[in-house]
């Protein structure tokens, strides 16, 4: 969780990579609202007021055999450490990266370094195969025996990846990204229904079995503050325009 300044909100971001020797962590974010826009304005040497972590339960890294990992959009940053971990644990790693368009395919070289096979899909066909990550999943499943799989990205994508994997009875883990406030299990803002019971994504997750997630409820809860989020961004953009003269 991080908070940029005194007036700021707390937002969750995934640790995409770490470097123990320099004590650095890598965070990748997409500008979608006020806080991320503000984060994007920071330059080298600026500080972030509050940073708390690491939070959540770690991915279960072990040798499964052959694994398939699907990353969509900014979710690619969240799959990267999983790809790296699973490769180091001796798995044969098949990676699928999907984005709307070519320039949104991030961390491609980093992912390739730890993947035995890498497939890229774009909605508009500007890079790799034209289509959705689920099309690539079908293709991989047709040719290989997969022992476990992960999908991280927009909620719709994760829902459809779950359906695709379920068709072949392939276990698939997703990393849920509900609204979070504290990120330490004290408010339940990030609650999700998993296999019929309430779980807090910040402490029980964020990874869950895709087939156990109540997707409709999860997707509906993501929209809770849509109006407020827009107000905040519009206000911020106005101030930016005034500052620029």
């Amino acid at each position: 969780m991080l908070r940029i300044n005194e007036m700021g909100e707390r937002i969750p971001l995934t640790i995409a990579d770490t470097d123990d020797s320099s004590g650095k962590i890598r965070l990748v974010f997409q500008v979608i609202g006020k806080t991320t826009a503000e984060l994007g304005k920071l330059t080298i040497g600026d500080t972030i007021l509050d940073l708390t972590g690491p939070l959540g339960m770690p991915t279960e890294i072990k040798n499964y055999g052959t694994v398939m990992i699907v990353g969509g959009g900014v979710g690619i940053a969240a799959v990267f450490p999983i790809i790296k971990g699973l490769k180091k644990a001796g798995n044969r790693v098949i990676t699928i990266l999907g984005a709307k368009t070519a320039e949104l395919v991030i961390l491609q070289e980093e992912c390739r370094q730890y993947s035995d096979e890498l497939i890229i899909t774009t909605d508009d066909g500007t890079k790799g195969m034209k289509g959705l990550v689920t099309d690539a999943m079908e293709q991989v499943i047709a040719n290989e025996t997969i022992n476990s799989s992960w999908a991280i990205g927009p909620s719709m994508m994760m829902k459809f990846c779950t359906m695709t994997a379920a068709k072949y009875e392939l276990p698939l883990y997703v990393s849920l990204n509900p609204i979070m406030i504290d990120g330490t299990g004290m408010c339940g803002g990030c609650r999700v229904t998993i296999d019929g019971s309430i779980k807090f994504a910040c402490v029980d997750g964020p990874e869950f079995k895709g087939t156990e997630v109540n997707w409709d409820e999860f997707i509906s809860r993501m929209k809770q503050y849509k109006t407020e989020e827009e107000t905040c961004l519009v206000d911020y953009q106005k101030v930016q325009v005034i500052n620029r003269g």
Binding site: M7, G8, E9, R10, K34, T35, I181, D182, M186, C187, G188, G189, Y225, E228, E229, T231, C232, D235
Partner: peptide, 20 residues
Amino acid sequence: EYLTRINLMHSYEFPKFDTP
């Protein structure tokens, strides 16, 4: 959650503070 948003995050002063 309700009280944390209000007390810790100052959401009653939204949008001056970012938490809605």
